[in-house]
């Protein structure tokens, strides 16, 4: 190790020379540092995505279940058969409704948490919002199944209040109704809204915390009514937060396959269709084609979100 102490002698030793080279060529250092993450992103992430995309251009031999490795668009055409198209429409509608309801419910909660909760209450609020994320997703869904069941807690409570005629009248409605809440579209909707709610509250809260109080006061001083202040000042400034939250709720609903399997009408969602075609029917091409649908929808969605400035604050 004399080389390290005596700078006049020729610098040798592998690590020393390596460090010299890297010092002289900072670009090489950059490449070496970036290579692992880029490879990770390129191979594991984009590579698998590309493999998925490739699968969707194959087709399946419907009897033996073996895949024909020949380029075809037949699998994509299958997406537009009425039954499959129903699945897409159903999922997107559910995702849109869930997102809308989440935003409406989350806004006042986030508003209170961001502007009015102080000190310890603020901590309690954060905990309260985050807590559902810490318990198991499956346990929560099974708990909801028991709450919404025909002989479940909700029915029991409504009977005690003599309000079960209200529930019966609601369940008699077409589309949203059913035999009990746990086997109706409404049940699926309630559980989706519940499960994804924290993902909506947190970004809105972050956006609202950044809105200076002075702006709201200025709006009031200039004669705006509270409603006008909300419409013209608070809401536009919070919009990026709402859009960011909606990206979570919308994409999570698009991809979920567990909630509609346990709670709902047995009608398929995109996630279930992917799961059934891939895992059960072995129809990987159609599963891949179905998996491309949320990617396309989210691409369009993100483009619109970007136009609305959802990422400006990032």
């Amino acid at each position: 190790m004399s080389a390290a102490t005596d700078t006049l002698t020729a610098r040798d030793g592998v690590s020393t020379r390596l460090s010299d080279t890297l010092w002289r060529r900072p670009k090489l250092l950059l490449v070496l540092l970036l290579l692992p993450p880029v490879l990770w992103l390129g191979i594991i992430y984009l590579g698998s995505l590309f493999a998925l995309l490739l699968q969707s251009f194959f087709s399946i031999d419907h009897f033996s279940g073996l895949i024909n490795y020949e380029f075809t668009l037949r699998t994509y055409a299958e997406l537009f058969t009425p039954a499959n198209f129903d699945i897409i429409v159903r999922t997107v509608t559910m995702a849109a409704c869930t997102t809308l309801a989440s935003a409406v419910i989350a806004f006042p909660i986030a508003c209170y948490a961001a502007r009015f909760a102080k000190g310890r209450w603020r901590a309690v609020f954060y905990l309260g919002i985050m807590m559902p994320l810490w318990s198991s997703y499956l346990v929560k869904i099974y708990a909801w199944k028991l709450i919404l069941a025909k002989e479940g807690i909700l029915t029991w409570a409504l009977e005690g209040l003599h309000l079960n005629w209200l529930l019966d009248a609601y369940l008699a409605l077409p589309v949203v109704g059913g035999n009990s809440l746990s086997v109706s579209t409404t049940g699926t909707f309630i559980v989706f809204v519940y499960v994804w709610m924290p993902f909506m509250i947190l970004p809105i809260q972050a956006a609202l915390e950044r809105v200076p109080v002075s702006m709201l006061e200025a709006s009031g001083d200039l004669g705006a009514r509270p409603g006008q202040t909300f419409r013209h000042v608070l809401f536009p400034l919070a919009l990026p937060g709402i859009v960011a939250g909606s990206i979570f709720t919308f994409s999570l609903t698009l991809g979920d396959y567990i909630i509609p399997q346990i709670i709902g009408t047995s009608r398929l969602f995109i996630g279930q269709a992917v799961y059934q075609h891939q895992g059960i029917a072995g129809n990987i091409p159609l599963a891949a084609a179905f998996a491309v649908v949320p990617i396309v929808i989210m691409g369009v969605y993100l483009y619109i979100a970007k136009r609305m400035g959802a990422f400006d604050a990032l």
């Binding site: 399946i60 419907h62 009897f63 009425p82 039954a83 129903d86 159903r90 009608r267 059934q276």
Partner: peptide, 30 residues
């Protein structure tokens, strides 16, 4: 047993892949 196109008791039968897609349709309300 798996429904096949070339079945024994008939000239031509509806094969299994149609069963799969049509049953998804029936459950979906089609």
């Amino acid at each position: 047993k798996t429904p096949v196109t070339n079945c024994e008791s008939q000239d031509e039968c509806v094969p299994y892949y149609r069963w799969v897609s049509d049953y998804i349709g029936v459950i979906g309300g089609r």
